[in-house]
Amino acid sequence: MKTYSRILLCIAICLAVGYLSSITTQSSIKTWYPTIEKPIFNPPNWVFAPVWTMLFILMGIAAGLVWNKLESNKELVKKGLLFFTIQLLLNALWSYLFFGLNNVLLALIEIILLWLVIYETYHIFKQIDKKASYLLIPYLAWVGFATILAGSIFWLNR
């Protein structure tokens, strides 16, 4: 598979996961989410879709760049892509826990785990391709912010 084909496939997979997660989110955005207390720094709802779209694209590029190093560092690339896959699944699970089940506490615990797995993915990617790891920094920052936001929502609605 060609270099750009791998990157495009990874972007498509990330965007598909994001789209599927948004299906779970959509009904709660109109019903449950408006009824809960949120901190003053909660972004408006329209911010989330473009931010997540950008993050999924950056994640896909990063994964594709790492995949393209498979021939030169097979074991580390496999490990990096395994962690990448785990964090992508945890990302989707968070939407289900928070918006699907409306379980803020479980979502808070899970997002902390998600951030840790993203950080490990970043660390592994950095050993393979520094540019790929740098593309995960906005994602780490956003999930860090989302963790603080989820913690605040938990605190305000306990």
Rank of each mutant, 00 (worst) to 15 (best):
P44V: 08
N45Q: 14
W46T: 11
V47K: 01
A49I: 13
A49N: 04
P50L: 03
P50C: 10
P50K: 09
V51L: 12
V51C: 05
W52I: 09
W52M: 02
T53W: 01
T53S: 09
T53M: 00
F56L: 12
I57F: 08
G60Q: 00
I61D: 03
A62V: 00
A62N: 04
A63Q: 10
A63S: 15
G64E: 02
L65C: 01
V66K: 06
W67M: 13
N68H: 07
K69I: 09
S72Y: 12
N73M: 14
N73C: 14
K74P: 07
K74V: 09
E75Y: 13
L76W: 04
L76Q: 13
L76T: 13
V77A: 07
G80M: 10
L81K: 04
L82D: 00
F83L: 15
F84A: 11
F84E: 04
F84D: 10
F84L: 05
T85E: 04
T85I: 10
T85A: 15
T85D: 08
Q87G: 01
L88F: 04
L89H: 05
L89W: 05
L90E: 05
N91D: 06
N91Y: 03
A92E: 05
A92F: 15
A92H: 02
L93Y: 08
L93T: 14
L93N: 03
W94T: 01
S95E: 09
S95G: 10
Y96T: 12
Y96G: 11
L97K: 01
L97A: 00
L97D: 01
F98Q: 07
F99N: 06
F99E: 07
L101N: 14
N102P: 04
N102M: 11
N102I: 06
V104T: 15
L105D: 05
L105V: 13
L105R: 13
L106Y: 11
L106Q: 06
A107P: 07
A107M: 02
A107E: 07
A107S: 13
I109R: 01
I109Q: 06
I109H: 00
E110W: 05
E110C: 01
I111Q: 11
I111E: 10
I112V: 15
L113N: 03
L116H: 00
L116M: 12
I118D: 00
I118L: 08
Y119I: 05
Y119F: 15
Y119N: 03
E120T: 13
E120G: 03
E120F: 12
E120Q: 13
Y122I: 06
H123Q: 12
I124Y: 02
I124K: 03
I124L: 12
F125E: 05
K126I: 06
Q127T: 13
Q127V: 04
I128V: 12
D129M: 02
D129N: 14
K130F: 10
K130N: 12
K131L: 13
K131M: 09
S133Y: 00
S133T: 09
Y134T: 08
Y134Q: 13
Y134I: 11
